[in-house]
Structure formats: structure tokens, C-alpha cells
Design a binder for these strands. Sequence first.
DNA 1: GCCAGTGTTTTTAACGATCAAACGGCTGGT
DNA 2: ACCAGCCGTTTGATCGTTAAAAACACTGGC
Lengths: 339, 339
Amino acid sequence: MATLKEVAAHADVSVQTVSNALNAPHRLRPDTLQRVIRSIELLNYRPNRNARTLRTSAVELIGYCVPNRPDGQVHLVMDLFLHALCSAAETTDRHILLFTAPAGLDGMPVYDDLHARRLVDGFVLSQTETHDPRHGWLKDQQIPFVSFGRVWKETTQPGPWVDVDGAAGCGAAVRHLHETGRRRIGFLSWWKTSGLAEDRLAGWRSTCLELGLPATAGLAIRCTEDTIDEGARAAAELLDARQPVDGIVAISDILALGALRELTRRGLTPGVEVGVTGFDDSPLASVVSPALTSVHQPIDEIATELLGLLTDAGPASPPSSTERLLQPHLVIRGSSAPG
Amino acid sequence: MATLKEVAAHADVSVQTVSNALNAPHRLRPDTLQRVIRSIELLNYRPNRNARTLRTSAVELIGYCVPNRPDGQVHLVMDLFLHALCSAAETTDRHILLFTAPAGLDGMPVYDDLHARRLVDGFVLSQTETHDPRHGWLKDQQIPFVSFGRVWKETTQPGPWVDVDGAAGCGAAVRHLHETGRRRIGFLSWWKTSGLAEDRLAGWRSTCLELGLPATAGLAIRCTEDTIDEGARAAAELLDARQPVDGIVAISDILALGALRELTRRGLTPGVEVGVTGFDDSPLASVVSPALTSVHQPIDEIATELLGLLTDAGPASPPSSTERLLQPHLVIRGSSAPG
DNA sequence: GCCAGTGTTTTTAACGATCAAACGGCTGGT
DNA sequence: ACCAGCCGTTTGATCGTTAAAAACACTGGC
């Protein structure tokens, strides 16, 4: 494996000149540059990243904690997200380092260790929860990070974040169902009151009210778990009501799939008698029949923004420039509008 | 951030002594060791991994290419696999570095580059295909790697591998359905003739023959894509045959879900009139109703074996010690046996 | 012919750790 | 009293790179 020294000897220049050829080519005389480049190619030289890191102390590695999937919670788009994150990192010659850690504050020593031992420059957090304690902790330790997801209910969020406007997403779903003639639209929500769930619920409610549609408490069902069965049960509840719904907006694709199953079981055709939408546009959405209309998160943009903020956001940056609320868009398929 | 030098000054010993305290504590006199350890803790010293790497040239990082999900292909267990891989790596203080690369030979320059620039020690390959060209290439370049999945159809496999006995998995599914009284068991396979598909198909066929059950070509349906619709269509074909099946072994959970849907549509109860099994034990299996009986791959063991082989397997290792065929086990749920 | 100014290249000195060899203190055999 | 051998510790060199400063070469003005 060739080193700078060997390239230098081959091109008959000093080591520093070869280094400059790579990092500041304008400093070299054109003919010297050519000669050095030829030697580099001839010897198939590649800079040793560790030596560079030692000197410059820029690791160019970003830590990402692989979520330990809690029972019943399915991350259907995680591989898409990771792919997007990697791609985005590679545009600036950085990479993603995976690690595992206990949830919440218990995991922070792991983050600290990775940073202190210089395995990573900083972190991308996901699975952000209401009152997530990790953000404040990292900020106190002055460890760079950026969060996918807001820390809900804090007055000021510690650190930069990128998030998707869930309210707007559900609003778009309601609007779409309204446009296709639905006049009574139910909402399938989650059991725990997370900021995420409240956000999406609020989007459903406000858009219904805005359009003059009912948005009573009875129209919003809290499912006890994120399963197809639970989605079916909740959908049944909405269909069996004195005034049955003709549209269902679900907070997740899994719950929406349950609603689809319940409709089919009753001999109803999703998209005809009742329109259904999901959230996340997971791979499952296009694999069922009729395919599921779903709110699509701009994953590539999320990844790009996350890594951009991680680079830019210093302690001095104004909060306004360290927050990005991205707009999702509705992918319309057969479950909401036939044809 | 404290360095060895600072710790040494604080403990009033030389730098090397502190290094020894960490890497070869038996060489120190107990009292010196205590003193050094106290200083290390007091200064909250953590060794700089990059400096260590530069000297020892052991990066302790393993590359894993995030699969670029081809359309229609769903990796439902990828997050579980990644978690297992990270955990296994961390037991020996290694980590997983993610990257993206084009499929097949086109991606090899990326592998080469990561290795040449010393970002990783070696690679874990997955998504192994029949005649996968990556293995031979890496072997030629003498880049360490280990493969999850055999290179089918090669006489000798280049490099170490870990795989799951798909034939045995499908055999177990057939045996289980036989034990619960099924006497005509169909198989839902994939369209392309991959080694993986052939392996599982062969397991179904041989076990059927062994048990005196029919295993004609008409009982094995090749689905044109891995979707719920296609699974339903294929299941319908098996159910509409002159001699309908009373058991269905599917090569994937997605296809099995399709079979479940088709049964329900016909007013049949999965697990009662017809038993159904899937493959992968993906999170979806326990989320549908009735829950899906499925072949579970020993993910943690796979990850541990992969990383073990990556460490051990040198060019001198005999092939016998660099191949691991692990046994899956059947997770029995309602879709095959009610109650 | 000297000097300032510009542009190119080399020299020196780290970055933070480990390895190999040398060193000094102590024990025990002769 | 001397030396061999062991143990714990220190010294010096090194991994491959980059930052900063010094050295060198050339140009043009006086």
C-alpha cells in the first residue's frame, strides 16, 4: 500500500508537495502537479484516512444508533432512511457509523464514549420522543448532533432538528378525501400521546373543521397498538357508528392496512365506498391491493438537511437557521380513489 | 480532551507506562497501576482511536453496504439484522460502517477505496446472489470479507460464509403441516431461479416425498413478484386445482400474507381448513390475524458467526472452518394450527 | 548588483498512540 | 563481591498525514 513518502520519492519531490497536490493543487507549478498526479496514479496511492484524521482531528464519521425495535413497533422505512443518510453523507466524503445503546439517558455514556474516543464527529438522532432527554445531555457535553424529529413540548429545543410536518400531511389526506367526495372522515391514532401523534391528529382535526366536516372526539379512535388487527378493530368502530364514516385517515400504514382488511371483510371496496389513507408510504403500501394512498416523507431531503445542519450548526448559529420543517406529500393510490 | 501525555504527567510516570496500564496491566507494579488508573479516571481520559489505528493499522471498523432496495423487494428484517450485527461487533469493540455502492461488479471500486483508505478492515456482504461476482473480486484483491449467503452454483466458494439452511426450514414447515393433518401441501416460490429459491423449493419437495405426500410440479407455483397480490393469486391457483391443497408453504412472509388474504376472502379460516407458513418471521408475521407461522432465521447467531469468521479466516484457514450452515426454526402461530 | 516581491518547494514539527529496545533496581547463585 | 536474570519503567523511533515556517528561485525596479 503506497504512502505519501513513496509517491514523493517516485515523483522526486518532497512529501509535502504531494500532500499539496491533493489538498491545494493551485500551489504547485502545473508541470510538477502533472508529474505528481502521474505518480499517484501509477502507484495507485490512496491517502490513509486515519493519519489524516490524527493530524486534522476531523473524523468524518457520524454516529447513528440502530433503534432496538420495541415489540410491535415496525420500522418499515428504516432501510430507506439509512440508505438516504449514507448517500447524503457520502456527498461530503463522510460515512455513517452504526452503534447500539440503551434507550433514553442510560445510553448516553455510549454516545459520550464514541465521541471521546474520536470514533465519530457527531450524531444523528432519530426516534425522538416527547421530552427526549438525549438532546439536552448532548448539548451540555457539547457533543455535536442533529435530530430527526422535534423534542415536543420543550419551550426551546436544544440543538438543530429536521422534521416532517405531520399535521400538513394528515391535512392533505383529509383534503384529498374531501375532494373525492367524502364527507365524514375518521382518524386512526395511537394510544400514547406522543407529540408526533398529537401533531398528526391536530392536522386531521383542523383541516376537517376548515372544510366544514365533523371532527368530533368519536371520530378519532386511539388504537392500543400499531397492528393490522387493531387497525381493523378501530375501523370497524368507525363503520359501525350511528353515522358511519366514508373516509379514514390513519396515522400509520399498518393501521391503514387493518382498515383495508376490515373493509374487504365487509364486502366493501376500499376507494369506492370508503377512502383510506396511511402514513409513511412504506413499501407495504404498494404491495397490497388496492394499493394504499399514503403520506410520503421526503426521505432524501430529510437526510440532506440533517447532515447539512450537523456540519453548519455551531454554538453560535441562530436557532432559526437550525430548524427545518419539511413538507410531506400525498401519494394517491387505489385505496382512496379507484381507477 | 486528555491525552496519554497528560495522564502520564499527572501520575508522574512515562507515557508508555500509561499505555501499558491500559493494554498490558500485568506489566505494572500494583501500586503504579493504581496510581495510573486513578489519574486516568480523574482526567476522564479516553484513548484516541485514530492514533491507535495509525500505529497498529487495525481499524476495527467493518463495512456493510446498505442494499439499495430494488422495486418490489422488501427487507422486512433488515433493521433486526443490522442491530444484531452491531451488537456482535461491539462485543469485540468493533463497529459497523455503512456505505452505498452500485450493485454487482460496478460497486467494487467503492469497496476497494474504503479498504485502501483504511476506513474499514473488511466487509460483511449480504444480498448474495447466484454467481455473485463480488466474492471473487474481493478475494483477488485480498480484501477481507465474509458473506451472509452462499455463492450458489460455484464449485468452490471464494471466502468464508454463513448461511441458513433454507431447505431444512421449508422441510420443517412441511413436517409441521403434515403433523397437523395436512396431506396436500403446495409451495409458493419466486419467479427467478436463485440458489436461495431452489434451496427452499428442494426442501419442500424432498420432505413431501419423504412423508409420502405429492410434490408434483403443479403444486409449486412460481410467483412473478414478491407481493401480497401475487401470493393471493398463486394461492387461488392452488385452491382451485382439481385436487385443492390443504397446506401452503410460502417462500416469503409477503407471499404467505397473500395466501392468508385469499383464504379469508373465500370465507376459509387459515389454520383450520388450510394451514399456511411463511419464511423470515418478519415483524408482519405477528401483526396479522391469524398470526403467521413462519421460519425464523437465527439472526443473532448469524451475526456472531459472521464477525467471528471475519476475524479468524485468514488465507491459510481450511475451507471447512470458514463455512457455517445454521439451522432455522419454525415459529408456530395461528395460521397453521388454531388455538 | 542589490533588494523587495512573488511564487514554488522543502524543512521542521507536530497529531496521539504503540513497539522495540535499552535501562536501572533488585534478587539470588557462585 | 560479581554477574546473570528478571521485573518494571523509560527512551527513541515510528505509523502517514498536514500546518506553519523557512528556504529557494525567479522577476522587475532602482
